[in-house]
Design a protein around this nucleic acid. Sequence first.
DNA 1: TGCCAGGCCGGGT
DNA 2: ACCCGGCATGGC
Length: 215
Amino acid sequence: MVKIKTIYQRLYRAFGPQNWWPGKNPFEIIIGAILTQNTAWTNVEKAIKNLEKQGLLSARGLRDVPLKDLAKAIRSAGYFNQKAKKLKAFIDFLFVNYGGSVKRMFKKETALLRQELLEIKGIGQETADSILLYAGNKPIFVIDAYTRRVLSRLQLISEKADYQEIQQLFTQNLPLDVQLFNEFHALFVRLGKDICKKTKPDCGCCPLKNCLFII
DNA sequence: TGCCAGGCCGGGT
DNA sequence: ACCCGGCATGGC
């Protein structure tokens, strides 16, 4: 049985620091977290640059821009109609509850804030946790498809383990360290890019594709 | 060229 | 409680 901490150490040794989140301030990180849902980060970067160029990369900017214009501005991020609504939903939430201030938002007790975020249409568990960890610097572990795939391949979880269950595997076996959680999740994503999507551990392609032999 | 990317929602069984 | 289709651009 591989220990969680060991996985981290080996990933870190193999890939080094990943320098997440590639956003300047917490607000921008939140926007990125929503835009990157099921989308390549390179496409999101273009959308964020566009928002910045148009002076929309702020709470008031996003609040005041018409939905259609917003959708056009984030076109490159894909699902732009949906995501425009999601951004609006978050911004509404931010103004209604925290006067448009991310700083004020993160003063809320973390577990309660997580629940509030999950009530926003378009923010699910992974996005909420990404916001808490990468924008809010809260020790919340983010679970994504890559993490699932890797753990499942290592037979540390069943293929149909739910989000909470997987999350607990980390929070119960690691110190609640923001920097550790930050780096660990980023390393899973880094590894995930290299491994195949087959779920059988004996698919035979992994050693050739620079995947789990690292662990 | 088709497949997939740092998901989530809503409707159907 | 699961399962599935829809959402969409850009890169390899």
